[in-house]
Amino acid sequence: MRLTRRHLVGGLLIVLLLLALTSLGLGPVPISPARALAGLWGTGDREAVLILREVRLPRLLLALAIGAGLGAAGAALQALLRNPLADPGLTGVSATAALGAVLVFYLGAGSGYALALPLGGLAGALLGTLCLLGLAHRGASSFSLILAGVALGSLASAASSLVLSLVDNPYAAFEIVFWLMGSLADRSLTHAALAVPFTLAGVALLWRAAPALDTLALGEDIAASLGTDLPRLRTLVVAGAALAVGPGVAVAGLIGFVGLLVPHALRPVVGHRPSVLVPLSALGGAAVTLLADLVCRLLPAGGEPKLGVITALVGAPFLLVLLWRVRDSGL
């Protein structure tokens, strides 16, 4: 049977549903499926209601939204910059988002104003994306763009670590690893409410921009002659990517490789057209992030490993294979 797009969407949705149910059913406290369902519905015993609704549900919602944001942003940035390696992690956008969030959170600029945290992440992501776009616009080659992204990411990560070391709080220095590696452990519904709407708005923007990105595959001149409003398209993608990545990083730290891995894994199946790839990468990103989060929780470690550790463990070898192939195809 030939794998069609409809099969793929159906399959991804079923996988997502199964992963979501597993995610709600598993945790350090064993809860039977029936009790968990009642707890989620709000009719169960107090303990099950609390654990399901206040601990496991926000974690699930954040994994889905953040993963979707990273997947969609990866696919859209790769199309806009016409660079197969342009993922939010590798290009430093996630790191600048983390820096924005770190500055707001630890320097107390946003204390008493809950929205300051996601807005800090958003501002950081916007700044990072604009830097990239500026470089691309000056005609930087694929590889110099990625190098610049690596430099930008290292700079932002180093600045975050420096701020965390200098902050007058003994715990801050230990939290460097959270911001650099990401985690969804013990995030609350408040965090979900702060990040999920922004992230979904970003995914929606990118989805809307995706059909215009299709024409860009032929080159900017041809795209323009086909009637694509390039400045507007750039603005849409930059704003969409920043929205899809920044607020998520602000509540869950930097989760790498999802935006790189997912579009590349899907391309052989659904082809290169961004109009198809962007929404599917959102679904795929959600599935990969949720799966990675499940692995974090299931590993029999004393303290649970950070989410970014798992995505990097899978993503980095994938990147190596990719670079190997890029060399062969002479890109």
Partner: peptide
């Protein structure tokens, strides 16, 4: 009088406030 770290924020998790 301090809560500007993730570790200290943990104790302010809304689920803890809802226990009996």
């Amino acid at each position: 009088g301090r809560a500007n770290s993730l570790a200290e924020q943990f104790l302010a998790h809304p689920a803890l406030a809802r226990t009996s």
